[in-house]
Design a protein around this nucleic acid. Sequence first.
RNA 1: GCCCCCAUCGUCUAGUGGCCUAGGACGCCGCCCUUUCAAGGCGGUAACGGGGAUUCGAACUCCCCUGGGGGCACCA
Length: 473
Amino acid sequence: MAAQVRVRFSPAPTGMLHVGSARTALFNWLYARHTGGTFILRIEDTDVARSRTEWVDQIQMTLRWLGLDWDDGPHLQSHRFDTYLAAAERLLVEGFAYECYCTEEEIKERNEEARRDGRAPGYDGRCRDLTVEQRLELVGEGRPRAIRFRTPDEGRSTFTDLIRGDVSVEWSTISDFVIVRSNSTPVFFLANAVDDIDMEITHVLRGEDLIDSTHRVLALRRALGSETPPAYAHLPLILGPGGAKLSKRHGAVALEEFRDEGYLPSAVLNYLALQGWGPEDGNEVMETDSIVAQFDLDGVSHSAAMFDHQKLDWMNGEHIRALPLADLVGEVLPFARDRYGGRLDVQVFEDAVALAQPRAKTLVHIAQQVQFLFIPEDEFRIDEAAWEKISKIDRLADFLDAAIQHLAVCAWDPESIDLRPLIEGLGLPVRKTMKAVFAVTQGSDVGLPAFEAIYLLTRETTLARLRAARARL
RNA sequence: GCCCCCAUCGUCUAGUGGCCUAGGACGCCGCCCUUUCAAGGCGGUAACGGGGAUUCGAACUCCCCUGGGGGCACCA
């Protein structure tokens, strides 16, 4: 057996957890749990200007909501600047890095010029081999000092990716890069390399957008004296519909949004696991435990996946239907309380959720479906389009009169409430006429099973709504 | 512009030289069930980007092209 697996999820706290990051977190977590390894949470907040502690908290909350627990951390890189700076100093002394006195503006200008001339952008190496005198002069001018890592001028960099095989690039295409900013804060590459060494990370699973930066991190690690690099696995990206970058335009992209829209964490986790990975038996609806048991790296696909909200909706419905009623009620309750507050009758609510469960896509959807039971009577409205449709129904007034008469005296149970015999008795078409029942009692011509719904509505309210509709004709 | 990665139904994917007249899932369409809408059942639609090469035989191997994505920051 190989050494214990140690993986980490290392987000930058610059915003909410995006589905792409969440998928990366998930795969790291799955791999750790599958192998019995350690899952570490590390916050890469080296960009002090953009990082915010509220995002650090928010990210943790979201990971917990998804059900991803970590064994170690969160470790904030902002607490370890001294360590990174000391490492940079060592690299400086040993000649792996050098001091750079070019200003950001100068570099930007030179890059733009290079682009105009059709040359490749990237640092031009101006400060690479300054003499002591030159350095002193630049310092004398009051110029800021950054530290740059010196990349090889020739040869190739190659590493073996766990899911892509050998990945290699010509060193000449990778220019010297900054590892310490002129304001003396460390940059991602440095902190990342140092921490992965110190935390003894064995496997780095991250998005494919980072594949090019791996060569630089690996070179840094070697310069820092690390002889055994971790295994790298670059995960396919998650794209929006049409293959464009997944963005707000395509609907929810932050996990918090999915939570607020009434998606179950188990469904989101299940769907995310399917972005780039699939179970061998093809059975896609899975409990988290089952995913953990089956997950492995060689099942990960190579190509990017497009995020499909429709499939997520279906998946969420599957998970909603798999939930025991009591659990589902607990899940929907916050959404319902939010809408109906004290008007919510828990017993009625439970029965209504049971009716909604087989036809629900999201928890919010369920909360909306039971609305007709809990809104104040003076706020109850029949959907205009539905009213338009049902008002054309043949002999609607006769039917409503008969229904009122029947419901005023019948026993109050769904069986006795059943209006179909009455409709047939009047010689009216059942399906068509039932549309009116839905609209008049629930506000829309589609809804929860009519007679159970009427039973929950109570005799009094039902009669009131029928009479109001009759009066409106 | 240069570099890197990728390439099977609309989408997620199975497929690792013959089991493929390419399988499953979402979606879509039809039928059944049915008090609406769903759910469920049954059936259908739909793909190996193009061209070479290797081979008795290529979705699967190799090369070229094309296409898509990513990167080339004192962001991560």
